[in-house]
């Protein structure tokens, strides 16, 4: 029985898991869960993850949610190369530190920019709230500055001298504003060269495969396919971004 991964490749942590599994040759069954259709709110999925979130994993009768937990589980179970999650005490602590920090510092502001600029207008049919967008971008900018001026000033990757789970999470999260047309790397030379290093390690083809969906424009006819779901999603997005 293969490991089943419940993913929506529009979601950055889902892409991180997808890339990690593919890159490490971990055999898995992909179970797509379309957030934009509210599939994560349906009873079938709640049996997999009552927290109503992707990513989620099922391995036999073991169920596991949360991206960091899933990445660590896969790295242990399939004994992936040590650089992803080093055994050395201090190096591992750096990866743990980054993985704890990124939730609020990268994932939240980067995804919010995408939701405000792309997803909310898509579902609501309303123009982008530019005042709100500027505020959300300024929050992300503080993080970009820290990554460029502090983190990458002392080492080539986010946590250690080699690519680790920290880079995988940061990379997929920073691609989210890119998908919304915000050139987050442009003003930051160290971040730009870090991006090239990560792409070289992961391989451009795998990155493209994982990001194809999110980098494509969404079909506007799909937005109102289920008006009730669209309305629920608009409400949730507005609350989240207020």
């Amino acid at each position: 029985m293969l490991v089943e991964l419940f993913l929506d490749l529009y979601s950055p942590p889902c892409r991180a898991i997808y890339i990690f599994a593919k890159k490490n040759g971990i055999p898995f069954e992909l179970r797509p869960v379309e957030l934009a259709r509210g599939e994560h709110l349906k009873p079938e999925f709640l049996k997999v993850n009552p927290l109503k979130k992707v990513p989620a994993l099922r391995d036999g009768d073991f169920l596991l949610a949360e991206s960091v937990a899933i990445l660590l589980y896969l790295s242990r179970k399939f004994q992936t190369a040590a650089h992803w999650y080093p055994a050395d005490l201090q190096a591992r602590a750096r990866v743990d530190e980054f993985l704890a920090w990124q939730h609020a510092a990268i994932q939240l502001p980067a995804t919010n920019v995408y939701l405000c600029k792309t997803l909310l207008p898509y579902f609501s049919g309303q123009p982008v709230d530019t005042v709100k967008l500027e505020r959300l971008i300024s929050r992300l900018t503080a993080t970009l500055q820290h990554l460029d001026q502090q983190v990458l000033a002392v080492r080539p990757f986010m946590a250690t001298e080699q690519v680790s789970l920290a880079d995988l999470m940061a990379f997929t999260e920073l691609m989210q504003p890119i998908a919304a047309g915000c050139e987050v790397f442009r003003d930051w030379p160290r971040l730009t060269s870090w991006r090239a290093r990560v792409e070289a390690v992961l391989g451009p083809e795998l990155i493209q495969e994982a990001h194809r969906l999110v980098l494509q424009p969404r079909d506007p006819r799909e937005a109102q396919r289920d008006p009730q779901v669209a309305q629920i999603l608009v409400h949730r997005l507005q609350e989240r971004l207020s």
Partner: peptide, 20 residues
């Protein structure tokens, strides 16, 4: 492995949904 994964599952949810 499984217990440790449960701990990380909680800590991940905690970071996203409790802390804020």
């Amino acid at each position: 492995l499984h217990v440790r994964s449960r701990i990380h599952e909680y800590l991940g949810w905690h970071a996203d949904c409790i802390r804020s």
